[in-house]
Amino acid sequence: MKRKMGFGVVLVMVVALAALSFMPMINTDRWWIRLLDFPRLQASVALVVLALPVLFYFRYFRRMAGLCLILIASALSYHAYVLFPYLPTGSDFPVADCPAGNAITVMVANVKMHNDPDGKLLDMVQDVQPDVLLAMETNAKWNEALAPLTKTMPHTVSHISGSYYGIHLFSRLPLVDPQIRFLAGQEIPQVVSGITLGNGEAVDFLGVHPRPPVPSRPDTTLARDAVLYKAGLLARERAGTAIVAGDFNATPWETAVERMRQLGNLQDPRRSYGFVPTFSAQSWWMSWPLDQIFHEPGFATVSLERLPSFGSDHYPFLGKFCRTAMGEDESVPQADEELIRKAKEVIAAASR
């Protein structure tokens, strides 16, 4: 009896975890289904652990245990298919050195609004010396704490709010027509600006921080996805070669991020480099990559780095990129009219 009860518990856990693993395949924007895309690595580890008691019970309940093993293998295969591009495969970045005038180093830091601005982030920025810092969840106290950065990063644009969506952009390089824009009808500020590289060329920069997939009204990812789609469309439409960076509140393998990449002809340097989780810095198990730096062709990645924690629930993320010569792969591909139509429908729905 105890053996049956024990196997019954294992059976329920396997079926539930396998079902949750495949549930993100459903084409829906319900927040809790989209959130299941986050813990794929954790789910894979849990499935491997569950395989051990299943193997133990196999000699007693051969048929049902065999079914469990099939479910575990299927779910693990699906997770492996999704995660493989984001696991370290040993691929080297195409550029090791870059002329100073062609280089740009971008740092992304979600400061966590209620985190104490005790100077750790300021010291880190002064040590790393990025060309561009995008700080999110900033408020009045963070505005004051980060003000010394203007001595070395005098080109700024910012928006302070009483919510978790304040945003600051600091740059050593001159900004071109910097704007705070509220994309897709959202009341959340995003940064849209040009940046003049050392070689005199202006490139585009979009700093985004959409809403996370959490229970709210509406309890969907519509608002988040609309901002990501709008960023992709802006990257496509603007004349300069673009970098899109920020806390996306989405993992890079999610459908919404993949559609944004297609809309903007963007590349994800995290592919082949590694999983590199940036959230949560306060948990060893709840860990996934939410902070992103994407770019259009015409940039090559020199390095990517997750920086040490400074007290926020996000790790800072640093990428160094090199502006390469204009090439055929830099041209914007023929628009997928159906994808653009669907993206605009989502943006319109979110705006309403």
Score class of each variant (00 low, 15 high):
Gly8Pro: 12
Met13Ala: 13
Val15Arg: 00
Val15Lys: 00
Leu17Ser: 00
Thr28Pro: 09
Asp29Met: 15
Arg34Thr: 06
Arg34Cys: 08
Pro39Tyr: 08
Arg40Tyr: 12
Tyr57Gly: 14
Ser74Gly: 13
His79Gly: 02
Tyr81Thr: 13
Leu83Ile: 12
Pro85Gln: 05
Asp97Gly: 04
Asp97Asn: 13
Met107Pro: 06
Val108His: 08
Met124Asn: 02
Leu134Asp: 10
Ala145Glu: 01
Lys151Trp: 12
Ser158Thr: 07
His159Trp: 13
His159Asp: 14
Ile160Gln: 13
Ser171Gly: 00
Pro189Gly: 01
Gly194Lys: 02
Gly194Cys: 10
Gly200Arg: 01
Asp204Lys: 10
Arg211Ser: 15
Ser216Asn: 15
Thr221Asp: 12
Leu222Glu: 10
Ala226Val: 08
Gly232Cys: 04
Leu233Ile: 11
Val244Asp: 04
Ala245Lys: 05
Ala250Met: 06
Thr251Met: 08
Trp253Thr: 10
Trp253Ser: 00
Thr255Lys: 11
Arg259Phe: 11
Gln267Gly: 10
Arg271Cys: 01
Arg271Ser: 07
Thr278His: 05
Gln282Ile: 13
Phe299Asp: 05
Arg306Val: 15
Tyr315Val: 12
Lys320Gln: 12
Ser331His: 13
Pro333His: 03
Ala335Ile: 11
Ile340Lys: 14
Ala349Ser: 13
Ala350Gly: 02
